[in-house]
Design a protein around this nucleic acid. Structure first.
Lengths: 185, 185
DNA sequence: TTAAACTGTTAAATATATTAAACAAAAAAT
DNA sequence: ATTTTTTGTTTAATATATTTAACAGTTTAA
């Protein structure tokens, strides 16, 4: 059974945070460009072993220990602002609370709809209970054959099997925090 | 203290030998080219982690375990024909018995001199006792101000502080097995 | 407030890993 | 003995990692 993703990105970031070293400090100490470290931590490259070795030697930590590190977020409780997981971007961006959610966990998402953003005329449907709260801007929400206009502070709750649709018809970003149980994707 | 060389080459080769898998079998199973595996095992590339991961998943073994593998050759006793270490090539090729030799160990080398090969007019000198035996071909050996012509079966022994020189003046390869104590390079 | 020294990220240039295909040698099959 | 597989290796073409340099945002100092 092949292991799942090795997640060097998290490992390195976590390690660096634990030891309070900046990308540039580590870069200098390991004779590697700071860009390389940034790219690794953002999963934008597939580093060579030589590269990883140089970095880990500078930390220092052995390769074996590095991969034996426990970075499971199973029991992680607090997720900092910059630790939210980006699961989609574009006209609508999604920042999720937690990773690899179980079916009994709510999928909380911080959603940002740019002006004109629209989940589409071909309404959404999925097997969840869905709730949300508008933080900024205004949102046009259609659930079934009813359409609502929501402003900051307003909230919603419905069964997502009912076809629904979000549209930002205003001129400024609309920011929503939503929750689905079980997670919808 | 940074670890010394990680030696992926040895690790992979050893692993593959232990499990009796050919390069091509492993390549196919891991969706990687057989060339890649060959290059890795010969230290001719600096593989990416993604690559290594694919290979190790096919073995299978975890990355952590892979790097925790003991491949120290400290007490290795028998070195197979294909396990000799190439420490130089070209007109003269050197295949050494063992790795990271200690000062109290003899450095045995299987040397092949192509026709015309010459260690150079500017004689060699180093702090060792040196001995050798001609296996094939003929060799012109100069030690100090004496020059000797050796054929298969002949041998030599001298203190390498005395300037010396090897020249294959014949038309065929000359193969020698030599030994230096302590190792000369 | 402004400036200076940091933070992490990104784009284009460069270096290098990886593949595909062909090779030669050894083992297996007929 | 001679095909036929299978072995590992190599080279040129291609894909991609890494660096250099510039950017924008945040913190520290004055």
């Amino acid at each position: 059974m092949p292991e799942k993703d090795i997640d060097i990105a998290n490992r390195l970031k976590t390690l660096r945070d634990e030891r309070n070293i900046s990308q540039r400090q580590l870069a200098k100490k390991s004779n590697v460009s700071n860009a390389a470290i940034s790219l690794i931590e953002n999963n934008k490259t597939n580093p060579s072993l030589g590269m990883l070795k140089k970095i880990l030697d500078a930390v220092p930590i052995s390769i074996s220990d590095f991969f034996a590190m426990d970075v499971s977020e199973e029991n992680k409780i607090v997720f900092r602002k910059n630790e939210l997981i980006e699961i989609g971007s574009g006209l609508i961006s999604y920042l999720q609370v937690g990773q690899n959610l179980k079916n009994n966990q709510p999928q909380m998402i911080l959603e940002r709809y740019k002006p004109g953003a629209d989940t589409g005329k071909s309404m959404l449907t999925h097997e969840s209970e869905e709730s949300g709260l508008i933080l900024e801007g205004r949102m046009e929400l259609t659930v079934g054959d009813q359409t609502y206009f929501l402003g900051a502070g307003d909230a919603y709750l419905f069964n997502s099997n009912i076809p629904h649709r979000f549209r930002n018809t205003g001129g400024i970003d609309c920011v929503i925090v939503s929750a689905c149980t079980p997670p919808s994707f």
